[in-house]
Write a protein that binds this DNA or RNA. Structure first.
Lengths: 231, 231
DNA sequence: CCGCTTCTTTGCGCTCCAACAAAGAACGGA
DNA sequence: TCCGTTCTTTGTTGGAGCGCAAAGAAGCGG
């Protein structure tokens, strides 16, 4: 199930950037591939991380459920990303659940093996530090958004982020490449599907976006960017 | 200006945990101490980090200002903490401003020196990874709070966190050890000073808290904990 | 001790958005 | 093709909390 170019793929990820080809091949050889069907959980909130996962194909969303049951989608992972990296490196339970949005493929390594690799190749540790730091800043931006931005702008941010990350050109716009319901958007923007539906409908009338069942596309990116303001 | 026990202090911080005494002393000898008066900025949002800072005494708050000017206080740093660690490790501009709440003392090392130290002592890199990871999870919790919790609970969280971190016993309760205005609380809870004032006043009538100008104390911790719910 | 500045309290109206409710629309399976 | 399920749209209502406004306290400097 190992694919021929896994080593090459690893070399283009943030975590294994800057490693010599032979190291990449050794690392790839140590990996166990894993497939996750759409809708299936890769790991669950509260579980102890036994493996490090690296997404090689597909889309995986990271969702957190609070004690009171309110769901929040933290981010969508793309190929090259390492879902659950913070928990795996810190050896603490996963703070969120990772769910495959579409059929996806991951490479996995036992946690101890990664610790060993990091020791032998300090570059991996440095890369990991950069990756985790990036996540911290991302979460900071998100906090700020929730704390200070009104709903409409938060929804606009979600669309901009998703099209930047997973946008594919389509007649008259850029569409998010995976199925995305109003409920999904609501969980990313910290609101309800009703408010999302109303907002998108209004934007659709104004020609900013278009969409259908589980589909959203931005038609007028400049106008959507104007909604989020300058920052 | 180096203090006698800086090395011992370093050994009890998360960043330098687990290092041999001699290493600690070498690291301490390389440090340049820096004093920051109350109200003075240690570093500013947007600036390039030239040094790594480690707080040895005092309190420093980390505040972010959005493009639209909305202020948000991300967290308060205590002795042993490393304000700006994410930016310093990633070599990106500081995402926030660090301001001394009271007269404070920090140790500083040039960025390159830290990189070198991390290379020579992998344990420091591991510690840094754990520290940054901890921050990520903290920011995740904060996001969740802003996204799903109503204002009253967020204010309760702020008080619980601050008294846990900087609480000192006082007649009939636990007081936050540094001056803290309603505005400060509002910036931590993502609301306005008006709402904070109203809420605290109401709680004061009910005997949960007490306070004065720039002072807040929790009188009935159980009741405040009940407000935030179970999670 | 007095005036000024900073911080806090309180009132009021209004807006945004969540909650509740219910009807369409699109898809999938039998 | 029909039916059930899932997703989306739309209406209505109510309440949380923000913006605006202004009047007290409390500390500080002269």
């Amino acid at each position: 199930m190992l694919q021929q170019d896994d080593a090459g793929f690893l070399g283009r990820t943030q975590l294994f950037d800057g490693l010599p080809r032979e190291t990449l091949e050794a690392v790839a050889a140590l990996a166990t591939p894993r497939l996750a069907r759409a809708g299936q959980a890769v790991f669950r909130q509260g579980a102890e991380p036994a493996h490090l996962h690296l997404l090689t194909a597909g889309w995986v969303k990271i969702g957190h459920v609070s004690g009171s049951g309110a769901p929040l989608t933290i981010r969508v992972m793309q190929p090259g990303d390492v879902p659950g990296c913070v928990a795996a490196f810190r050896r603490v339970p996963y703070p969120a659940t990772a769910t495959a949005i579409v059929d996806s493929r991951l490479l996995t390594w036992p946690r101890e093996m990664i610790a060993e690799l990091m020791e032998r190749h300090p570059r991996i540790a440095t890369n990991a530090l950069g990756m985790v730091g990036g996540r911290t800043e991302e979460m900071l931006q998100r906090s700020r958004e929730f704390a200070t931005e009104p709903v409409e702008r938060r929804i606009a941010w979600v669309l901009l982020r998703l099209t930047a990350q997973a946008g594919q050109p389509v007649e008259g716009g850029i569409e998010v490449a995976f199925p995305l319901s109003r409920q999904d958007i609501a969980e990313m923007a910290g609101t309800t599907l009703h408010t999302v539906s109303r907002t998108l409908r209004e934007w659709e009338r104004r020609g900013l976006v278009s969409g259908g069942r589980q589909r959203v596309a931005i038609r007028d990116a400049a106008a959507v960017r104007a909604i989020v303001g300058d920052e």
